[in-house]
Write a protein that binds this DNA or RNA. Sequence first.
DNA 1: TTACTACTTAAAGTTAACTTTAAGTCAATA
DNA 2: TATTGACTTAAAGTTAACTTTAAGTAGTAA
Lengths: 156, 156
Amino acid sequence: MFYTVGEAAKRLGVAPSTLRYYDKEGLLPFVERTNGGIRMFKQSDFEGLRLIECLKKTGMPIKDIKRFMDLCSVGDESISERLEMIDRQRERVLEQIEQLKENLQILDYKHWYYETAKAAGTCAVHDSLSAQDVPSDLRAARENLEGGVQERAKGS
Amino acid sequence: MFYTVGEAAKRLGVAPSTLRYYDKEGLLPFVERTNGGIRMFKQSDFEGLRLIECLKKTGMPIKDIKRFMDLCSVGDESISERLEMIDRQRERVLEQIEQLKENLQILDYKHWYYETAKAAGTCAVHDSLSAQDVPSDLRAARENLEGGVQERAKGS
DNA sequence: TTACTACTTAAAGTTAACTTTAAGTCAATA
DNA sequence: TATTGACTTAAAGTTAACTTTAAGTAGTAA
């Protein structure tokens, strides 16, 4: 029912040194030790580790994750603050997704750009193309990419 | 019609040292200089910079961005390879979005968890709750978070 | 011509998040 | 009891992406 640091690391797909580092940074106050000082990860510890993974993957720095874990340790009096941290992180994730979607549009435009150039054998094919030659769902991204400041004279 | 490094940095919302660093790393081969050696950013340079921003924000390392810029410099013979790089990056972005959405679900569950705990004044309220007490759209996230390995005896 | 501000480079410094190393300990097996 | 492999800590090393510093140059305004 218990895992050593190596077994826990394998189960989580991280290096043992990573778990020791997290422990040293105070992210794993819930992990107990044997008399000999060896860490014993129990089933329920993996729930905390899964949350840490979630916070890390959504860009929360180690220090802030430690803050959250400290709040968990003090008990019920910190519920409101924990809720606030979760809500702030949720909003950051929504922003990240929006940002990625916007950048995805630019990559979609570039995909079309190079597909078209590849078919023509040269990027110069785009010199004679205007907005209506660009697939409608990519026009906004093209504007975004090119700054939309000035219109290039076509066919000149 | 030209920008110094400081003006370009301001327009892009980055530090001048960042643009100098990018230039040193070979990301800005298109930026020209005055006789005196001062960088002159022209309108069209901002298109390249916008693409660099896109690649950076989607997690591409500086080295790979340099690779892409080098490909741009060689001309039409590198179109296919540039297309491949764009396509690979597109897929990474789709993966990132999926990952973020999954982690968002966990945060949504935690939001509900702490809202409920806050209302009850204690996290212990969750000890007496079972799967059907969890909003249906959050059950999957709860399973994900708790590993779903074992069912806790209720009310014991 | 003298200030003055922003520019230049090279090199060193910073930060986050690990990873590696060194020296030693624990626990199970031959 | 001795060996083996995984564990322990502290401290140093790594990497990416900048930022800062130092020493000097460019270009403009008085």
